[in-house]
C-alpha cells in the first residue's frame, strides 16, 4: 500500500530526506518516530501528493505520488500536524464541503457515521471556532476518514487530546488499521508501542531503525545485563559486593539500582541473590534489563556514529 524507494528531498543545499526506503502493507499500522526536523512531515507531505520528491519514488495505493498525484490524493486521508480547519464553518458544513470535493457517495449518511465514530454527533452544528482543541483534533480526524480512504496518514493524531479522548482515538486508529494502511507520526513513544505493528525511526533524514516494537526492544536487549535493586543499609558497598560476584564483568549505577554485565552465556542471577542475602541486605528487584522504546529512540537518534542495530536499515 505504501512503497517508498530511495526517497530524497532537498531544500536548496539542505537534505531533508536522504534516500529513505520503507514500506507498509494493508492492515498495518506504521509508526514514524523521530525528533523535530528529522524529516517525518516532509515524508508525509510527499506521500500525500503535497510536494514532489527530489529523487526516488513513492507509491501509495498502487499509484505513483508524482505521476498519479490526483489518484494518490483520492486514496489517502491526511491529517496534517496543524489541524486544517475553516473556523467560520460548522462541523457538518466543513465535512460536507470536503466530502463534496472528494465526491463521497451518500454524503449525509457518511458524515453522520464519521461524526459518530469520532464522538462529535452532538456538536455537528457547532461552529468550529467554538470547539476545544481536542474536539478540533477529532474534527480533523473525521475529515481524514470521511471518504473511507485506503491509506491514512496522520501527523501527531492524539496531540492535544485528554486521556479519555486519547484512548478513544487510539482505539479508532487500531480499528481503522485492521483493514487499511495507517501511517502515524508521533513523539509519544508509548503510543507507538501500543498502536503500531511496525516502527520506523528517522533522524536527520535517514532511517536509523525499523522493526516491530517487540523486536526493536528484544534486539537491543543487551545480553547478560541485569537490573538489581538492593535495600537495607547497603550504601556504596552494594556496588562492590555485586562486582565481586563470580561471572560479573561490570556494575553500573542506574536509577535506584545497578546494571550488571556478565560474561556471555553465564547466568549470575542465583549468585547475585545469594551474595546480597548472604550479606544481610534486602534484594528488592532482580530482572533482565531491557531498554524501553524511549531509550532505544534516544540511543539511535543521539549517537552520531552509532553502531547499526539488528534490523536496522542504513542508507548512506
Amino acid at each position: 500500500m505504501i512503497e517508498v524507494q530511495n526517497l530524497t528531498k532537498r531544500y536548496g543545499t539542505f537534505v531533508a530526506l536522504d534516500s529513505i526506503s520503507f514500506s507498509a502493507r494493508q492492515g498495518e499500522i506504521l509508526g514514524f518516530l523521530g525528533p523535530n526536523g528529522a524529516g517525518k512531515t516532509t515524508t508525509m507531505r510527499i506521500l500525500t501528493g503535497y510536494m514532489p520528491p527530489t529523487e526516488g519514488s513513492a507509491q501509495v495505493a498502487g499509484y505513483d505520488v508524482f505521476d498519479d498525484s490526483l489518484e494518490v490524493r483520492r486514496h489517502v486521508g491526511y491529517l496534517p500536524e496543524t489541524v486544517p480547519l475553516y473556523r467560520d464553518m460548522t462541523v457538518r458544513g466543513y465535512l460536507d464541503f470536503l466530502a463534496r470535493l472528494r465526491d463521497v457517495p451518500q454524503r449525509k449518511a457518511r458524515i453522520d457515521e464519521v461524526l459518530a465514530r469520532v464522538g462529535m454527533t452532538d456538536r455537528a452544528r457547532s461552529l468550529i471556532r467554538s470547539l476545544s482543541k481536542g474536539m478540533r483534533q477529532r474534527v480533523g480526524l473525521a475529515q481524514a476518514i470521511v471518504h473511507n480512504p485506503d491509506v491514512l496518514i496522520l501527523d501527531e493524531p492524539t496531540i492535544g487530546l485528554d486521556p479519555h479522548q486519547v484512548q478513544d482515538v487510539r482505539a479508532l486508529i487500531r480499528e481503522l488499521g485492521q483493514t487499511r494502511t495507517v501511517m502515524i507520526s508521533t513523539h509519544i513513544l508509548s503510543e507507538a508501542e501500543q498502536m503500531c505493528d511496525r516502527i520506523v525511526i528517522i533522524d536527520r533524514g535517514r532511517i536509523v531503525a525499523e522493526d516491530t516494537p517487540e523486536q526493536l526492544r528484544a534486539r537491543l536487549h543487551r545480553s547478560g545485563r541485569l537490573f538489581v535493586r538492593v535495600g537495607g543499609r547497603a550504601g556504596q558497598n552494594a556496588g562492590q559486593l555485586l562486582g565481586g560476584v563470580p561471572g560479573v564483568t561490570g556494575v553500573e549505577p542506574h536509577a535506584d539500582g545497578y546494571l550488571i554485565s556478565a560474561r556471555p552465556r553465564t547466568d549470575v542471577r542465583a549468585a547475585l541473590a545469594a551474595a546480597v542475602v548472604g550479606h544481610g541486605l534486602e534484594l528488592l528487584e532482580l530482572r533482565p534489563w531491557a531498554l524501553t522504546l524511549e531509550e532505544i529512540f534516544l540511543e539511535v537518534t543521539t549517537a552520531l556514529d552509532h553502531e547499526p542495530v539488528a534490523g536496522e536499515r542504513r542508507h548512506a
Partner: peptide
Amino acid sequence: REGTLELMLTMPVR
C-alpha cells in the same frame, strides 16, 4: 496561515 491550504493542496483537486 491557518494550514488549510495544505489540506486543499492534498485534495483530489487541481
